[in-house]
Amino acid sequence: MRAMADPRRNGKSYRDLRVRLKGSHRGTTCHICQKPIDMTLAWPDTMSWSMDHITPLSHGGLNIFENVAAAHLTCNSRRGNQLDLNRDANGRWIASRDW
């Protein structure tokens, strides 16, 4: 029997959320490092655009517009499923190498 796809990360509503975020003013700056995202770069380029859940799905976050933000693929991957506990005074994520 084939496993069902995770509806939190697949399906029309998830794709619609990505399209809405990419088209918004919030979709061009990485919310983690605060640097602009080059929208011409495509996955799997480490500096390409990705959608990050502010409160990770694994911590009960929802797939809603208010809970997502744009991030570089590398910033998003580095953050993983961390909560807001690892931000500096300027609101930027602190990478493990900076602790």
Rank of each mutant, 00 (worst) to 15 (best):
R26W: 05
M4E: 14
V68S: 13
R97K: 12
K22Q: 14
M51A: 09
M39I: 07
P56K: 04
V68I: 14
D98A: 13
F65W: 06
R26P: 14
L41M: 06
A89H: 08
K35E: 15
S24E: 10
K35M: 12
M39H: 02
I54H: 03
G80L: 01
G91Q: 02
D45C: 02
T40E: 13
D88S: 05
R26S: 13
Q34V: 07
Q34A: 12
S96H: 10
G61W: 06
R79C: 04
C75H: 01
H72K: 00
G23N: 15
G23I: 06
A95G: 10
I32E: 08
S48R: 03
H31L: 03
T28M: 07
K35Y: 05
F65M: 12
L57V: 15
D88W: 03
M4K: 14
D88K: 00
C75I: 01
F65L: 12
P44H: 01
H59G: 05
Q82D: 15
H53M: 11
P36F: 04
A71Q: 04
R9P: 03
S24T: 03
D6W: 03
D84W: 01
L62H: 10
S24H: 02
N86E: 11
S24C: 03
N67R: 02
T29E: 14
T55Y: 11
A71M: 03
C33A: 03
D6I: 08
K12N: 11
N76P: 04
R9Q: 14
G80C: 02
R18V: 15
T55S: 11
Q34D: 11
D52S: 05
L83P: 00
L41E: 05
P7D: 08
W99V: 14
S58F: 07
T55V: 15
C33D: 04
I32F: 03
A71Y: 03
R97D: 14
W49T: 08
T74N: 06
A3K: 14
I32N: 02
D16C: 04
W49H: 12
S58W: 07
R78A: 14
R9Y: 15
L73S: 07
Y14E: 10
T74C: 05
G60K: 04
T28W: 05
A95N: 11
R97M: 12
I32K: 00
G91I: 03
N10I: 00
W49Y: 13
D16V: 01
Q34P: 01
A5G: 07
V68D: 14
G23E: 14
L57P: 00
E66C: 04
R18F: 05
R87D: 04
C30I: 00
G11D: 11
D6L: 10
W99Y: 12
R2P: 15
H72E: 06
D84A: 02
R78F: 09
